[in-house]
């Protein structure tokens, strides 16, 4: 419990640092928002008035704290492009991206762990080389390419979904999930291949350890050795890796959303970057960073439940 508390405290601290750096960076690159807002109508008086109205004349630390307070309370400022509150803009898109990433994550986990165990059994056979090559191939095919292939075959040819036309997540849940399902597969293939590769070598490594010999000497069969001992010992690496996967998926989703025309965070990010819509980009950066740090923290907390040696508190 003490460990969990410490870990969560670290999460908060990291987020404060990240948010500060983000705020600082955007303060430096984005120029004067008041000037941007007024454009050609700017006169020194009106500029000063607007700056005062927007609170830009306050010192930097004050502005940071008020921005952070706004962030926590859901007031994230106004988008330059859409002229609407950033939170209202982001919330529905966050839902879609969350669905996509979770779906992909579940698929990756459900497919890659059994596949890794299955492929372990072929170690040293001729089939092993074929499997390794196939694994490399899966890592090599970029998600946007599989995405294009899928939208051609399942969308244009078989008409299972209409590429580019994403149904509303709330009213048309089934349709939307079908759409997301294909995207989730594309997003997941390379990462699943990496998970299999990593998991397989972990299992091979664990199999060399002395406790496996002890387990056999007690009369365990192959299945018993694997399920009772080796898998549990391989689990911590898998959890860490899957935590990283959760972080990577959000990066991959940027591209996949573009291919399938899914209105998620990724597309919003790309659009906002192209249009220099800094309040939106700033918020997205903090949300994405939070996602990444949260995934890592969760993985650590789960691992600490699995491995009692991590509970000693020393290693964080």
């Amino acid at each position: 419990m003490k460990y969990a508390l410490k870990r969560i405290l670290m999460l908060v601290l990291t987020m404060v640092i990240v948010s500060f750096l983000t705020f600082l960076a955007f303060e430096l690159i984005s120029g004067d928002p008041a000037e941007a807002k007024l454009g050609t109508e700017a006169t020194p008086e009106r500029l000063a008035a607007l700056r005062h109205e927007m609170g830009l004349d306050r010192p930097f630390p004050v502005r940071y704290v008020s921005w952070l307070a706004g962030f926590v309370s859901g007031d994230l400022g106004t988008s330059y492009n859409y002229d609407m509150p950033v939170w209202e803009l982001i919330a529905p898109k966050l839902e879609v991206t969350l669905c996509l990433c979770l779906l992909s994550f579940v698929l990756i986990t459900a497919v890659s762990i059994p596949l890794a165990i299955w492929s372990y059994r072929w170690t040293g056979t001729a089939f092993d080389a074929v499997r390794t090559a196939f694994n490399q191939l899966c890592m090599a095919v970029p998600p946007f390419f599989t995405g294009i292939l899928m939208s051609y075959f399942f969308g244009i040819v078989m008409r299972l979904f209409i590429p580019g036309d994403f149904p509303d997540l709330r009213t048309d849940f089934g349709e939307a999930v079908t759409h997301l399902f294909f995207a989730a597969i594309c997003l997941g293939i390379p990462r699943a291949a990496m998970t299999v590769r990593m998991m397989r070598s972990t299992v091979i490594g664990e199999m060399q350890k002395a406790y496996v010999r002890t387990a056999i000497s007690r009369g365990n069969d192959r299945r018993g050795v694997l399920t009772r001992h080796v898998l549990k010992n391989s689990l911590t690496s898998a959890v860490t890796f899957l935590g990283q996967t959760m972080a990577e998926l959000i990066g991959g989703s940027v591209v996949v959303e573009q291919v399938f025309g899914i209105p998620g965070l990724g597309r919003l990010l790309v659009y906002s970057i192209s249009n220099r819509d800094y309040p939106v980009v700033e918020t997205l950066v903090v949300i994405l960073a939070f996602w990444v740090v949260l995934a890592g923290t969760l993985a650590d907390l789960i691992n600490q439940r699995i491995d009692p040696r991590l509970r000693l508190g020393g290693a964080v």
């Binding site: 350890k209 002395a210 406790y211 010999r213 002890t214 387990a215 009772r228 001992h229």
Partner: peptide, 10 residues
């Protein structure tokens, strides 16, 4: 080596 002969997680 009893330490390595035992499963560390059981």
């Amino acid at each position: 080596e009893p330490m390595s002969a035992m499963d560390p997680l059981m």
